[in-house]
Amino acid sequence: MLWKNGAFVDDPWRAIAEGEDPPPAGHVILPLDWWLQERDAFANSNAPIGLRVEPGVSIETFLQDLGRVSLIALSFPKFGDGRAFSTAALLRERHGFRGEIRAVGDVLLDQLQMMERCGFDSFEIKDPTVQRLLSERGAPAYSRFYQPGAGAEGQADGPRPWARKRI
């Protein structure tokens, strides 16, 4: 189930496995390796494309494609593997990526807001408990932070330039 903007929503995207033919209509999420080999085939296509990126892959690998792709799905093989937090932050703040950044894999309830603050805006939730908790109570939402973040937040009152408050 896809959690986005505080609700479960229908997902227009379809994840394509390695070797499977993508449907021509687009809205497919391709494994990065697949894309790197086949991207010339999309030279004349405007079909929306998404990429699935595993942790450990340098952004440099697909930097030239950021203008072409509409979605980047960053994978969390284990919830404790936090590399994608930095990848998302770099995509947003360094490279100005404006498309969707999606968290896929092992995503904890209490990570959602941290992910949002690093620039993620959608979350694939597979765990039934997390699905239930989100349906019942929504995502945990703290309102005070000690760092600038990418979420819906603004400069906090007071002197501390690094502090932010949720709007």
């Binding site: 936090g82 930095s86 932050a89 807001q113 941290m114 932070f145 000690y146």
Partner: peptide, 13 residues
């Protein structure tokens, strides 16, 4: 201390 408290990017190092 303040800047590192519940840092969104650095809580799963």
């Amino acid at each position: 201390r303040q800047w590192s408290s519940i840092h969104p990017e650095f809580s799963f190092l």
